[in-house]
């Protein structure tokens, strides 16, 4: 299990114990973290699972692929540290990761 903290737009935090091998999106959905809608189920096709990566973790989490980058372009409130959580795999290296969730994914 890997500990990931999700910070909602109103500042409330949720600590989620995520299974290694799942996507961060799936771990968030399993824990019922609000506003991770993931309408396409993790196919990198809807941009409704956007998260903002804590700047301290950017290097470890890594950059989006070209396809993810294109999808992020249609996400509302994209920021330089935006990722699609369905495209981040939970690994041991992410233990302690902090992510922020946008107010709405629509």
């Amino acid at each position: 299990m890997v500990a990931i903290t999700f910070i909602a737009h109103d500042g409330r935090t949720r600590l989620v114990q995520a299974d290694i091998g799942l996507s961060v999106m799936k771990a968030a959905r399993n824990a019922d973290v609000p506003n991770i809608d993931a309408e396409c189920g993790g196919a990198c096709s809807c941009a409704t699972c956007q998260v903002y990566v804590d700047p301290a973790w950017l290097e470890i989490v890594g950059l989006p692929s070209a396809a993810e980058d294109a999808m992020l372009d249609q996400a509302p409130q994209r920021r330089p540290n935006s990722r699609l959580s369905c495209q981040i795999q939970v690994t041991a290296a992410l233990d302690g990761l902090t992510l922020s969730v946008p107010e709405s994914q629509y």
């Binding site: 096709s45 941009a47 070209a66 396809a67 993810e68 980058d69 294109a70 999808m71 372009d73 249609q74």
Partner: peptide, 11 residues
């Protein structure tokens, strides 16, 4: 096909 940018922008 392997062209997410057009998919996004074509919407």
């Amino acid at each position: 096909v392997n062209n997410a940018r057009d998919f996004v922008q074509g919407k």
